[in-house]
Design a protein around this nucleic acid. Structure first.
Lengths: 202, 202
DNA sequence: TTCGTTTTGTATCGGACGATACAAAAGTCC
DNA sequence: GGACTTTTGTATCGTCCGATACAAAACGAA
């Protein structure tokens, strides 16, 4: 019974992600959203409730198809240290390749929305925890294989790596300079790559 | 000749900083600004032109009284490595002590405004360069004093430290967890503090 | 005092915002 | 073919936005 929907929910959520990703929550108008999604205002409200609810749906969709996808792909690599390096390689290349400098929707939201919206802040904190947990698993795995310098403490290093993800994403929103981003992560990747049985070069 | 202004420009700029710092450029209305600044809308426009011009004035004022003030104070410390550590100590404490989670106006602006406003992006890039340059000077000074491990390359490490500043400021907008922020900077500060004549503990 | 200049206060301007009322349309079920 | 339900399209709703027009007010200059 009832009239069927004229749009695919995943498709219009992707379009909503495009809007929110580039402009943020407040600066994106419902008319912008409806136009990009190819539907009318009332259809948007009927399907998603209000702008904030649509934003949360889009954020969740982004986290699955972007963040978790990359984490899952990296976690399948045999070498955990190479997985961390590849993670940042992809992150920097993707950030530099985007002419709109959109950065990361999660990081953007952490800064724009989280301080004023406790419910969304909880979502963001959980997503950031997932990234940190990925790094920690990789580091613990490397340490278990005897591949990590003992001075590298997995918990703190995972926090630092999460911080680097945030820093790369924020920097890439202002400047497009590969040497700057590469240089930022280089000392840390070198610290991780160092084998425990090889002395730090004098 | 002419009627004198009823307000002090520095005072109202401080009030404008409070607004923009907490809510950003777009989310702060001219009525919010005028209310906090204690003046009327037309006075605001008469004195500052428009909202964006006021924002740039407030940003410049913030950079001087907040960023450069801290850099100048840290640079006067005799030990450059201690200056770097103290810089982050202050940064983290200030971030955690703010109940409004305002973070840093420069970092907030880098994420909110810079991608869509090339002129402001140039200002932000210059401010970030100042922070990076401060770290680089401190590292070069430490190296010249024989106090820095040779594996620490000042240029890249300065970029990394700038990244850490950004990361601390963004993280503190979402979570209030000192152990998280301390843990994030701990591996780097340990790397910098390590004396070149002392072997990394096995 | 009168003139000239700038600032201040009141009252808006047109437009964009988020969100809806309402009826026509497009389906399923009997 | 009707009855029922949900979606769609049109036309708004009241509110807030950035920005001003205009005149009264407050000063220095003459």
């Amino acid at each position: 019974m009832s009239r069927p929907r004229s749009f695919d929910e995943t498709d219009v959520l992707e379009a909503a992600i495009d809007c929110f990703w580039a402009r943020g929550l407040e600066a994106t108008s419902v008319r912008d959203l409806a136009g990009r999604m190819g539907i009318n205002g009332p259809s948007l409200y009927n399907a998603f409730g209000d702008k904030r609810s649509l934003f949360m749906r889009a954020l969740e969709h982004y986290a699955v198809r972007s963040m978790r996808e990359r984490i899952g792909r990296m976690e399948r690599l045999p070498d955990p240290k190479a997985a961390i390096a590849a993670f940042f390689g992809e992150l920097i290349s993707a950030s530099l390749a985007d002419p709109d400098r959109r950065g990361c929707l999660i990081v953007n939201t952490a800064l724009e929305v989280a301080p004023h919206d406790p419910e969304i802040a909880i979502l963001i904190a959980a997503y950031l925890d997932e990234i940190e947990a990925f790094f920690r698993r990789a580091l613990v795995r490397a340490a278990a294989g005897g591949d990590l310098a003992p001075s590298v403490e997995p918990t703190d290093m995972a926090r630092l790596l999460l911080g680097l993800v945030i820093a790369v994403r924020v920097m890439a929103r202002t400047v497009s300079d590969r040497s700057r981003l590469d240089g930022m992560v280089r000392p840390i990747l070198a610290l991780i790559q160092a084998r425990p049985d090889i002395r730090t070069p004098a």
